[in-house]
Write a protein that binds this DNA or RNA. Structure first.
Lengths: 169, 169
DNA sequence: CGAATCTTTCAATAACAAATGAAAAATTCA
DNA sequence: TGAATTTTTCATTTGTTATTGAAAGATTCG
């Protein structure tokens, strides 16, 4: 039996109330950003962990599968929400939660919200061009709504960079 | 054959480029708030519509089912994103898109984000109490992370009401 | 009132997203 | 180098959410 799987079986200690509380909190928050439950589990566990944890420990404690642990950690690493720490004499990677919680919010804004706002901007331009060829009567209402949309998008574009700066500290 | 279904079949005119553009835009935006595609389709269509549309027209134009149209319109009505207008001599309800786009953002903040922040607040208090019983050494790191979380949550709680006010005009 | 029309509901189905775990790839150690 | 260990990948399975459409419910009109 491979060592990793063996460890997973034998080390399956129950989660403490503290860990459960933390995990639930992050599952809920990260779901808001469209992240799967497994990612919340990993981060929540690491958040209240006294020291770095290896992947097999995360698997054992949460009961999640190899693939979910690997992919979740990869994702969290990419977002800078988790990092590996050097552990002398250890072969496995060991992970700690980064304290930079704002990364979750800012990466959401930068990678989800802002791109969509840019796309919307382009769409609006195309739509206004298309509306030129509508008869005056058909143009009226949509044109008013477009104006409101542009106004609101402009607001968003003003507030978002400010918000990012504010969240980053 | 019921009149509604008959109408649905016969009126299935192709969507204009303008309508497609609008629909795609709103599908993308509303997905961000966790709303299903069908809702984006309805709102996007109404947004560029020159006049009120009845449910069967929405079904015919988008090709969506009776149930999806009914449920989507109900949802949009509840959020105040769509409203019915009086149409003399008409039996069917007729819908228009409300110009109040900020409703989407503010309802998301008020109904999704804020409740979770409140829950998090409670969890944090419980977690701090639980951490009392940890040995000093095990408490150190989690305690630091908790401080950062509290700091960040406090920031969020300050900025959100301000943001809501800003978006509401 | 009662027939016709319109709207909502909801059980069944389809579409989609997440989790699993075996196999491949990469890394480490002797 | 090569055996052991660790990590990643990805086809399959499982679970969740959205859509469908028939039936029930509500409304309108004569």
């Amino acid at each position: 039996m491979p060592a990793l799987v063996e460890a997973t079986r034998s080390k399956a200690t129950r989660l403490s109330d503290l860990e459960v509380e933390s995990i639930e909190m992050f599952i809920n928050f990260l779901r808001l950003l469209g992240w799967p439950k497994s990612v919340g589990e990993i981060y929540g566990l690491l958040f209240v962990s006294a020291g770095p944890l290896a992947m097999d420990e995360i698997m054992a404690r949460t009961g999640m599968s190899l693939g979910a642990a690997s992919q979740g950690l990869k994702l969290l690493r990419e977002f800078g929400a988790v990092r590996t720490v050097y552990t002398p004499g250890a072969r496995k990677d060991h992970y700690v939660a980064s304290g930079e919680l704002s990364r979750f919010a800012t990466s959401y804004i930068e990678e989800e919200l802002l791109p969509r706002m840019r796309t919307a901007q382009e769409r609006i331009q195309r739509m206004e061009r298309m509306m030129q060829s509508l008869p005056e009567y058909d143009r009226q209402l949509p044109a008013e709504r477009m104006d409101r949309l542009k106004y609101w998008l402009g607001k968003g574009q003003k507030v978002v960079p400010w918000l990012v700066k504010f969240l980053k500290l």
